[in-house]
């Protein structure tokens, strides 16, 4: 979190973390559609010239002024694939808050847990203690695991707030985003 005093801006970074195809980019795409154009940038996917990709998406959002400052939020996704572990760590660095997007499909439970532990390892290594919100996505799957089974596997002590979502239908997207920002800015959940 930084303050650009000359522009009276509060610069925040929110990262969507989670296994591949859990819906992280879908969250950003939906957010982009939901947010009034004058408050956001285009969604930028960093595809390089040729066939190489920088492997993250980002969206910038400006909120209304609070405490004399205008919060400007850079929202990132990380790549979920195992080979991009290092890139995930780099993108995670300096995050002010993380939304962990878990997949409700039963066969993805192992991946949910693996990435969850990896995220905590990376945060510990970087000595970062940040607000984390669990978004349990794809609640519309016919064989979706109960939310409690997923959250129990990730967070047995119930330390983190949970939002259920169907990101592709825009459900839970706005709530997750607002909640993580409130956690960052006020240190509390809503």
């Amino acid at each position: 979190m930084r303050i650009a005093w000359d522009r009276r801006e509060l610069l925040l970074k929110v990262v969507y973390y989670g296994p591949p195809r859990a819906g992280k980019t879908t969250n950003l795409e939906q957010l982009q559609q939901m947010i009034a154009p004058e408050h956001r940038s285009d969604l930028i996917s960093l595809n390089t010239y040729g066939d190489r990709t920088l492997f993250f998406d980002l969206l910038q959002v400006s909120l209304s002024q609070v405490g004399g400052l205008t919060p400007r939020v850079s929202v990132y996704t990380v790549p979920g694939q195992p080979r991009y572990r290092r890139v995930r760590e780099i993108v995670l660095r300096g995050a002010d808050g993380v939304i962990y997007v878990a997949d409700s499909a039963p066969e993805r439970l192992g991946e949910n847990v693996r990435l969850w532990h990896q995220m905590h390892q990376q945060l510990r290594r970087m000595h970062q203690e940040v607000p984390i919100l669990i978004q349990v996505n794809k609640r519309d799957l016919p064989n979706a695991l109960p939310t409690s089974s997923i959250t129990r596997a990730l967070d047995p002590h119930g330390r983190y707030p949970v939002v259920e979502a169907q990101a592709k239908h825009g459900i839970g997207v706005k709530e997750s985003f607002m909640q993580i920002l409130m956690m960052i800015l006020t240190g509390e959940t809503v």
């Binding site: 939901m34 009034a36 909120l63 209304s64 800015l185 006020t186 240190g187």
Partner: peptide, 19 residues
């Protein structure tokens, strides 16, 4: 920001006109 204001007030102010 972490003082004084009530949560709902901060929330209302912060997300005003965002959507």
């Amino acid at each position: 920001l972490r003082k004084d204001k009530s949560m709902s007030e901060t929330r209302k102010q912060l997300f005003r006109d965002l959507w």
